[in-house]
């Protein structure tokens, strides 16, 4: 045992000596002047430079490959997105085509019915003139609305609640309905060469047959107040606040009724046979700046047909 231990110690003697020598070398290196160390580092850097350049090239290639792969995946994702969008657009296109076909068929049906109708409705856009515009026209003797009826021109035109910038030049006639969208704002009462006076639904003297909730009929009257009054509606008719008041379809020539407003108050006096109904006009009291005037004309196709038949007879 003693011999074995001695052999082992002898076996480690050389490594220990090597270690001591290595440590001495390390100390010498640590104490080496900076200039010498720098020159050694310079040699090491020169030896490593080719490898560093190769590593940089490899890095660039890797970056390029990663970029290419990334862009490839992005392109694939974008392609999938575009395909999805295309699918959606095709579907939307089919829906729109169906809607267009439906609208076309409706238009064709309407055109067919127009051919048969005796009266046609045409709309002409007009601007509502403000007070300054009216005063300007008065100064130039252009605002002669009402001269036909012998009323003092300027007074009527300037004081009229609403004046629009179209008149006989667009073949307006009294009682043409003035609308804003599908809402009735009033009707023309006086027509001049280039201007017309409009009577709003709230003005005293305005009267029109109306339909309530698509059933009961009554007479709408302007009361000079923000609300209009509807008379001659029997108490047997079911009327409620919020019901829509429209033009009487049977009395007009439009396929769909126009809106006057909504009922805001319903009263009934004791023993009365008719409701007292108050309506909020659909067109605001200050009114829109641009309106459309509905003109009723004879259907030229029907007239031509009548003439042709008359000649044949």
């Amino acid at each position: 045992m003693k011999g074995k231990g001695r052999r082992e110690r002898r076996g480690w003697a050389t490594p220990v000596a090597t270690l001591v020598a290595g440590l001495l070398l390390a100390i010498v290196l640590a104490m080496m002047p900076v200039r010498w160390a720098a020159s050694l580092r310079g040699v090491a850097a020169a030896v490593l430079r080719p490898g560093q350049q190769a590593a940089l090239v490899l890095c660039r290639c890797t970056d390029r490959a990663v970029g290419w792969t990334k862009s490839h995946f992005q392109s694939a994702a974008r392609l999938a997105e575009v395909e999805e969008e295309l699918k959606w657009l095709k579907q939307a296109n089919r829906h729109l085509a169906a809607e267009l076909a439906a609208v076309r068929s409706q238009a064709a049906a309407a055109a067919g019915s127009d051919d048969q109708q005796l009266l046609l409705v045409d709309s002409v856009e007009a601007n509502v003139l403000g007070r300054q515009a009216r005063a300007f026209l008065v100064r130039r003797h252009l605002l002669d609305v009402g001269s036909r009826t012998g009323i003092q021109t300027d007074a009527l035109a300037v004081d009229a609640p609403v004046v629009i910038d179209r008149g006989n030049d667009t073949k307006f006639k009294p009682f043409n309905v003035v609308v804003s969208g599908r809402r009735v704002g009033g009707k023309i009462v006086e027509v001049g060469p280039v201007t017309s006076v409009v009577q709003p639904v709230t003005e005293p003297g305005f009267r029109e047959v109306v339909q309530i909730a698509g059933a009961a009929q009554g007479i709408l009257e302007g009361a000079g107040e923000p609300l209009c009054r509807i008379r001659r509606v029997e108490v047997t008719e079911p009327i409620a606040v919020g019901d829509e008041v429209t033009t009487a379809t049977g009395c007009g020539v439009l396929p769909t009724p126009l809106l006057f407003g909504k009922i805001v108050r319903v009263d009934r006096r004791v023993g009365a046979a008719y409701w007292d109904i108050w309506m909020q006009p659909a067109v605001a009291p200050e009114g829109p700046r641009r309106v459309a005037v509905l003109r009723i004309e004879l259907n030229p196709l029907r007239m031509a047909e009548e003439k042709r038949l008359g000649i044949k007879d």
Partner: peptide, 28 residues
């Protein structure tokens, strides 16, 4: 090998050559 640490010391010396500071510290 019982003297394998010598090789490891030399490898550490390479590390000292590419790093700032005193030479031989990592090696020792």
């Amino acid at each position: 090998h019982p003297s394998a640490f010598v090789v490891s010391g030399l490898i550490a010396l390479v590390g000292d050559l590419i790093a700032p500071g005193h030479l031989g510290v990592g090696m020792g």
